[in-house]
Nucleic acid binder design. Structure first.
Ligand SMILES: [Mn+2]
Ligand SMILES: [Mn+2]
Ligand SMILES: [Mn+2]
Ligand SMILES: [Mn+2]
Lengths: 220, 220
DNA sequence: AACATAAATTAGCCTTGTCTAAAATATATA
DNA sequence: TATATATTTTAGACAAGGCTAATTTATGTT
């Protein structure tokens, strides 16, 4: 049985290790809003529990057991976010904080019932994949919108680092997961993009926003 | 902001104070599975926070503020139990433990959205009233089945102290909230009751079970 | 009135998870 | 190569919330 703090540390490590990156003490502390010294203690504890492998001064890796536990947490977090948006009418910018609490409720039956109740969703409101009960996630061919060529047709697949202000900006511009756009122009000066939809007005996105949007190819 | 432990103590006090009873240290400890000495410390803390009035050696009362906070917790607990049974298909004997965790998730928006999603239910799966967002509960005219006279027609309104084994026993006998029975006979020897329904087989209940079932009058 | 008993409180200890400050280490730079 | 800097770890403190053991209090019984 893991404590809430242990779970949050595990999840932070897992998040930092995405796409081959490393997980360092300082970054974990920053994510959790604590100090590096506190993290060091917890890394040792989770290593003793067999969930992490901590090489002092060289960062931390997940063991198989740790990977499994982290994926279960991610699954719970994203299922709850989906529930809040799809069933309770929350905005996608209002769910993270609450899911951060709900993910720690421990009941396998609850998790699996919720999953079934929601129809086994494969992506959460931010486009992030939801691991199934075996930890398997749907793989996709996604890349940052910022790197797309003018003329490409793409579908918005996910928001990379979904902060509330970013999500609110996207709401205001009417941009959401699943929408299909054509990259119509890129400004050389600031890298901003102009997007066009089949119908509806065009949208202009700064390079900063475009870097946060992950897209997949869309056939015309 | 209350900690989980503070919330559980507050809820225990509230539960013990039902129908004019007193709340003593020992009973609180028993409910929470802790020791009286631990409870004393927490009572002092909650008194300092203005939620309880603790008269050492003479038990504890809720302040207005404490009453409000306790009712909010009861509301959350019972709404979650209702969600688990009505939406996720849990049995009424499987929800308490999970609701005991879920009730501590702090988000007013979550509570009120859930309430609305469930259609503002007034009673939980065990027949206990769910306070509305102002703390108001629906009043009913209920009494223990054990005290009913032979010949009375009654509707099962609630299970007084819903332990899992009791709920499972009721499941096996096919007895649930809302069902209407006639008290057909009482054995003088052990106080056991025979109940009859409009249709379906009769049920025999021990005096112990009958004492745990709360009923309201039903017109024939 | 004195005493026995149950309940409650107090005192002191422990674990968990955080912090600050000091020391150690790795790495970039002169 | 020597040193400066950023990062990490270690050491020591503290608050929260639990425990056991000792003490105090209320109350029922002789
Ligand atoms: Mn969390
Ligand atoms: Mn998400
Ligand atoms: Mn609880
Ligand atoms: Mn209930």
């Amino acid at each position: 049985m893991l404590t809430r703090s242990e779970e949050d540390h595990l999840k932070a490590v897992h998040a930092l290790l995405q796409d081959g990156a490393s997980a360092f003490t300082k970054d974990i502390a920053e994510r959790l809003g604590t100090k590096a010294s506190s993290v060091t203690v917890m890394l040792k504890k989770l290593t003793d529990k067999g969930l992490l492998k901590h090489e002092p001064y060289y960062g931390v890796k997940l063991t198989g057991k740790g990977q499994t536990a982290a994926l279960r947490l991610v699954r719970k977090h994203r299922l709850w976010e989906t529930f809040l948006v799809e069933r309770l009418g929350f905005g996608w910018d209002e769910v993270h904080e609450v899911a951060e609490q709900l993910e720690h409720v421990s009941s396998d039956k609850l998790t699996d019932s919720l999953d079934e109740y929601l129809g086994h969703p494969r992506f959460d409101p931010h486009g992030d994949p939801i691991p199934d009960r075996n930890g398997k996630v749907q793989s996709r061919n996604i890349k940052p919108l910022a790197g797309c060529l003018v003329g490409e047709r793409v579908r918005i697949a996910a928001v990379k680092d979904p902060s509330d202000p970013l999500l609110q900006l996207l709401d205001e511009k009417g941009i959401g997961i699943g929408m299909v756009f054509e990259v119509h122009a890129r400004q050389a000066f600031d890298g901003s993009l102009e997007l066009r939809r089949k119908q509806g007005p065009p949208s202009t996105l700064s390079a900063l926003v475009a870097a946060q949007l992950l897209v997949e190819p869309a056939r015309p």
